[in-house]
């Protein structure tokens, strides 16, 4: 999502220098996007989380892996027995939960970024091929998509991770594979829709190369749904990675990944509610922020909902 944000930042002042020009599409988009309060909140939450993640080493009060043996299972600061230096309490081996959550944001964002990038590149490529070449290629790709869609995604991800071995990287690969069908379908549908349009026919007749057609003419027109899907893909990726971590197949200790933290904290549900509650909340807030922003993007990009 970083690309979109920087684009916006870069473009807005540029437009300001030339007041007489008609409003650029980006500016129009930004106006519509910023009308949506939820989307703005989502965006700002993501910005804050990103800043926290980037500067985790500076922001976090402690190292995420340092074990304070004398402070195991310390409650949050506002509870009796809590300490201000361990604001959200400590985990069973005496690590600061707040610090782990802040460092964990890195992993969650990283997971989202890697999964979305991977699935976007592969999914778009396959979708373009399927939509453009039709026939055998299309059939082969779309039947594979059908097969993948028929399998419960979590089960598929679980099996893929089991094959590759439990680790964060493998969990990301598994999730990227599982979400592929959505990108393929969106791209293909957009390609099919564009192919019937006159400008495509015109450039074809004019002898434009296949590559040019695919990437210069057609792809930009499929961007809107893909951007929305990619934003929402962040939340799916974070949720799925947490689920895999929860089932013990994601990041391995002592990595402060949120899902893994939850799995580890499960046994303390009644004795130390904070160990269990905060990682879950962190996941919820982050995912919610991405979904809010994704919704805003959809509304801003989807011409059907234009007022």
């Amino acid at each position: 999502m970083a690309t979109i944000d920087t684009k916006i930042d870069a473009d807005v002042p540029a437009v300001a220098h030339e007041p007489p020009a008609p409003p650029s599409p980006l500016r129009e988009f930004w106006e519509r996007f910023s009308e949506n309060r939820g989307a703005l909140i989502g965006m700002w939450v993501i910005v804050v989380i990103t800043v926290l993640a980037v500067f985790a080493d500076v922001v976090a009060p402690h190292s995420p892996t340092q074990q304070f043996a004398q402070f195991q299972l310390l409650p949050p600061a506002w509870q009796e027995g809590g300490q201000l230096s361990f604001f959200l309490g400590t985990d069973p081996v005496g690590r600061d939960i707040l610090s782990r959550l802040i460092h964990g944001a890195r992993f969650s964002l990283f997971i989202g970024l890697v999964v979305v990038t991977l699935s976007l590149i592969v999914g778009v490529a396959l979708g373009l091929f399927a939509g453009f070449f039709k026939g055998v290629v299309d059939n082969l790709i779309m039947r594979t998509v059908d097969i993948m869609m028929a399998l419960p995604s979590l089960l598929l991800a679980l099996a893929v991770v089991a094959i590759l071995g439990p680790s964060l990287v493998n969990a990301m690969i598994a999730i990227a594979i599982v979400v592929l069908p959505q990108y393929i379908r969106i791209t293909r549908a957009a390609v099919l829709a564009e192919m019937t349009k006159e400008y495509v026919t015109a450039s074809r007749i004019a002898g434009a190369s296949v590559f040019r057609l695919m990437f210069i003419n057609i792809l930009p027109n499929a961007m809107a749904p893909l951007i929305v899907q990619a934003t929402l893909g962040f939340s799916t990726a974070i949720l799925d990675a947490a689920a895999l971590g929860f089932l013990g197949l994601g990041a391995q200790p002592p990595t402060p990944e949120w899902g893994t933290m939850l799995a580890d904290a499960r046994e303390f549900i009644r004795r130390a509610w904070w160990v269990m509650t905060f990682p879950g909340l962190a996941i919820l807030i982050t995912v919610l922020a991405f979904n809010l922003m994704g919704d805003g993007l959809r509304d801003a990009l989807d011409p059907r909902l234009k007022k």
């Binding site: 939820g38 689920a243 919820l284």
Partner: peptide, 13 residues
Amino acid sequence: LTGYSMPIFWWAL
């Protein structure tokens, strides 16, 4: 949207 963003295992617990 909150429901949609919920980690389901955490929700269950």
